Deep mutational scan, measured.
Amino acid sequence: TGEEYIAVGDFTAQQVGDLTFKKGEILLAIEKKPDGWWIAKDAKGNEGLVPRTYLEPYS
């Protein structure tokens, strides 16, 4: 299990392996990579890379 984050903006996948999401979606951070791209999972179970700058902790 990971930590929940809320998307603060829309993001469209730029390449294969990225995860597209919309502002307000809750994402589960699976792995926090030091380069600023995290592996996350959305509510539908889709998994991919997301930019850290689009996420804020969800409580």
Rank of each mutant, 00 (worst) to 15 (best):
G2S: 11
G2Q: 13
G2H: 14
E3D: 12
E3M: 13
Y5R: 01
I6W: 06
I6Y: 07
V8I: 15
V8N: 10
V8L: 13
V8A: 06
V8Y: 04
G9P: 01
G9C: 15
D10R: 03
D10N: 09
D10K: 03
F11C: 05
T12R: 08
A13V: 03
A13W: 04
A13L: 04
Q14L: 12
Q14S: 11
V16E: 14
V16F: 11
V16W: 10
V16H: 12
G17V: 04
G17Q: 06
G17L: 04
D18R: 12
D18T: 13
D18P: 03
L19H: 01
T20L: 02
K22N: 08
K22S: 08
K22Y: 10
K23N: 05
G24C: 07
E25H: 07
E25A: 11
E25R: 00
E25V: 05
E25I: 03
I26E: 01
I26F: 05
I26R: 06
L27I: 08
L27A: 00
L28A: 06
L28M: 11
L28S: 07
A29G: 03
A29I: 15
A29H: 02
A29Q: 03
I30E: 02
E31N: 11
E31Y: 12
K32R: 08
K32P: 05
K32I: 08
K32G: 04
K33H: 12
K33G: 11
K33M: 10
K33W: 08
K33V: 06
K33F: 12
P34K: 10
P34M: 10
D35Y: 06
D35L: 04
D35H: 07
G36C: 08
G36E: 06
G36F: 05
W38E: 01
I39Q: 06
I39H: 09
K41N: 03
D42R: 00
D42F: 00
A43K: 11
A43Q: 13
K44N: 13
K44F: 14
G45Q: 04
N46C: 08
E47K: 12
E47N: 07
E47M: 15
E47H: 10
E47C: 14
G48F: 03
L49A: 09
L49W: 13
L49C: 12
L49Y: 14
L49S: 10
V50C: 06
V50Q: 00
V50G: 02
P51W: 10
P51D: 14
R52A: 15
R52I: 14
T53Y: 12
T53F: 11
T53I: 14
Y54D: 05
L55K: 01
L55A: 00
E56W: 09
P57H: 08
P57Q: 08
Y58M: 09
Y58S: 07
S59T: 13
S59M: 12
S59W: 12
